[in-house]
């Protein structure tokens, strides 16, 4: 498998070294799945586990989810994790929300040239997955401005210098720009009618960490569980509210959806609104700046509150 950036070897070495020294209990990265060309997350607990680590353009998963799950299980442990710049933003959000103790996480950063969007080349020949092309590159990579993992504790490989070629959230701007409200409603009704309520979008999201999701709370029953279009829509719209000012556009929810609901269209729209209302705030970009929905300010806009 072609490696997008040649960090595989260096990462394996680094991971082995960290585990040998014993200051780290687990290293989280990617390995090849049994079904090439795809990769899957891999947690190395022993030095020998590190041999399987790879990195290539198919390493799409946001590993912060696995950091969170690991630390929930073993709160006393320390983990090292290979993070793309985009994924690292969710770690910042989790640290801001005191869900992860940043001291327990060693971020291994690198210069990321972008990853592919597996859905764009699903079912194509293996070659279509091998290197980045205009056809298979993920939308989010076209406007990425965090290619070199910020706040990395260890940086491996070369820095990359690739300028964004598209405006941020260009797909959403375009989508919402030319549709009327009733067209939008029809579109979303159609999209949500195919939702099977597998909750993969929720499970894969590192920021969806509630012990008991509101969709399972039944005193009162806010959202009924059976997968009808209305219930599905309510679930997704409600989740969008949860993500307001928090979503960092890793794109995992959209990737995992088995019926292809374009969920990023929702969350990025909400992010645009937050950016617009709260002085350009972007989640996960600045660990010093308080998330607008977590603090109260007299200057908060209230024109959208009923």
């Amino acid at each position: 498998m072609t490696e997008a950036v040649n960090i595989g070897e260096e990462f394996r070495k680094k991971a082995r070294e960290l585990l040998r020294k014993g200051e780290i209990n687990a290293v989280i990265g990617y390995k090849k799945s049994g079904l090439p060309p795809y990769s899957k997350p891999h947690i190395a607990l022993k030095e020998d586990d590190t041999d399987e680590f790879i990195f290539d353009v198919n390493c799409v998963h946001n590993l912060v989810l696995y950091v969170l799950n690991y630390l929930l299980e073993y709160p006393e442990d320390k983990v090292a994790v290979l993070l793309k710049g985009c994924d690292q933003k969710s770690l910042i959000v989790l640290a801001q929300e005191s869900k992860i103790d940043r001291e327990r996480v060693k971020v291994i950063g690198f210069g990321c040239p972008g990853v592919i969007d597996p859905r764009k080349v699903e079912g194509d020949e293996e070659d279509a997955h091998k290197s980045l092309t205009a056809e298979n590159v993920h939308d989010k990579c076209l406007y990425c401005d965090v290619r070199n993992t910020p706040q990395a504790d260890i940086f491996i490989g070369e820095m990359v210098d690739i300028k964004p070629t598209k405006e941020r959230y260009f797909r959403e701007r375009e989508f919402y720009g030319k549709k009327s409200e009733s067209e939008l409603l029809d579109f979303w009704k159609g999209a949500f009618s195919s939702c099977i309520r597998c909750y993969a979008c929720r499970q894969v999201c590192p920021l969806c960490y509630c012990d008991i999701c509101i969709s399972y709370r039944n005193m009162p029953q806010w959202i009924e569980l059976s997968p009808t279009t209305d219930n599905n829509m309510l679930f997704h719209v409600r989740r969008a509210m949860c993500m307001a000012g928090r979503c960092i556009d890793c794109g995992e929810c959209e990737r995992v959806c088995p019926v292809g609901i374009p969920l990023r269209l929702i969350y990025n729209k909400v992010s645009l609104e937050i950016e617009d209302k709260y002085d350009g705030y972007r989640a996960g970009m600045d660990s010093e700046r308080k998330p607008p929905l977590q603090e109260y300010s007299m200057a908060d806009p209230e024109d959208f509150i009923l």
Partner: peptide, 16 residues
């Protein structure tokens, strides 16, 4: 405990 750490606990495999 180490068999399938990648499982995220969604319902896709059971639904399909």
């Amino acid at each position: 405990k180490v068999l399938e750490p990648s499982c995220i606990g969604c319902g896709i495999c059971t639904f399909v």
